[in-house]
Design a protein around this nucleic acid. Sequence first.
DNA 1: TCGCCGCCTTTCACTGAGTGAAAGCCCACT
DNA 2: AGTGGGCTTTCACTCAGTGAAAGGCGGCGA
Lengths: 254, 254
Amino acid sequence: MSGNVSSPGATVVSRVLAVLYAFDNGHRRLGVTDLARRADLPVPTVHRLLRELVAGEALTRDAEGRYAIGRRLWDVGMLAPEQTELQQVASPFLSDIHAATRATVHLAVRDGTEVLYLDRLSGRASVPVVSRAGSRLPLHATGVGKVLLAHAPAQLREDYLAAVLRRPTVHTITHPERLGRQLAAVRREGYATTEDEMTLGACSIAVPITRATSGGEQEVVAALGIVVPTLKRERTRLLAALQVAARGIGRSLP
Amino acid sequence: MSGNVSSPGATVVSRVLAVLYAFDNGHRRLGVTDLARRADLPVPTVHRLLRELVAGEALTRDAEGRYAIGRRLWDVGMLAPEQTELQQVASPFLSDIHAATRATVHLAVRDGTEVLYLDRLSGRASVPVVSRAGSRLPLHATGVGKVLLAHAPAQLREDYLAAVLRRPTVHTITHPERLGRQLAAVRREGYATTEDEMTLGACSIAVPITRATSGGEQEVVAALGIVVPTLKRERTRLLAALQVAARGIGRSLP
DNA sequence: TCGCCGCCTTTCACTGAGTGAAAGCCCACT
DNA sequence: AGTGGGCTTTCACTCAGTGAAAGGCGGCGA
């Protein structure tokens, strides 16, 4: 290499991944320069990588010359066993909940300090909801997030509470002690709720999905939640539907 | 490079893709040697690539040392605009059909000479169905496949009919002329059906989803289908539900 | 107990694939 | 005609990638 030192760990593979990871929900179609900026790589290098990725059908290129994730990579992603096995088992149960409540239903797991949405069954004319399969949200502002945070390892939970938390709406609870007490309640009662905490006009209720570990203990592997305009007196009915489905899913897990 | 000539077009990028593409529905978890065989690359090379991919969180490694597609790549795949935009628009309509019929609902597009399933809403205790989101099946043996084949470019259709067709069951129609006549009927009637042609004990009915092109013409972009144990007298009712949903989806497309 | 086989991992000398600054395009806007 | 933005190509340099070979490890049959 002639000119630059090119930061350590600079293998071709890591560059390819940097380029792929440069895409996100808000930027699904990007030009060479944008991608180079986001991946922090020189433009000509990215340009060459993109050409090779398009040739390999991993990316597509639209009429305006922008690049996007292609069919083959979508395919490959669908083979991720951890996400799709759970999602596949849960799918019919999500339909059941949706049929019984007509609300938007979510299946999510914890990925580090974020909620990762695995699946969403959207009610048609219902509440505006931000999440879709593949999107990530903070743990403390959604129903499923609170469930997952409540059952996360104690250390992670403490660190999370101690950090500065984002406030998507004015109703978002970020006060460490208040949130901590709420999480204890979630563990005690077996479900979590939110009211206007992620999106104004949207309430949610969520329950954990558990699986028996090899040691015989119950372990929370995911969360199941629904989003509705208001909880009001519906609470018990919605909760019942969720709990039935969550148990069904837990039982069906390998 | 010392030893081998390493076949032309052998860039690192193409090797990475070869490794990723070596995974498939039946083999989601593979060891180094298997992957090397499938990707047609030397074992040490694959081994190094795998290490880098795991370091980049693109792949995961389980307790037995086998590799699988990881969360980050699943994420990336979910950003493929062509698949997910359509899937997202269609999602509530799939729920509607599912609610109205309790059958397994499919959303699929044509990818070359295969049906590519974008989404599936599975009925619980219903018919055994092979397809899941991301899986591929031949065009001539499923309802959605026939719809997509019927509306494929004439050249592709002729080539397809002329080729030797697989027969998943004894009921699969492979005779070129008979299949050709059936496809003409699909175009005329606006829907396709199958009976035991992909799986014994499974019938299906499917309709096209169309979008207006810039030229004002109608273009088939996807197909919507359901799988049921038997069509019998249900035909008209199921067809109505499908057609309503297909029009709704077509209208909602950008 | 030993040898064999299959699979995973590491080593290492060689060299061409990858690199990226620089220059050349093309288009839009002024 | 000039300027700025993004996209693409070139090209001399050199180090990242290469893969045959060898080293481990565990299981199985003799």
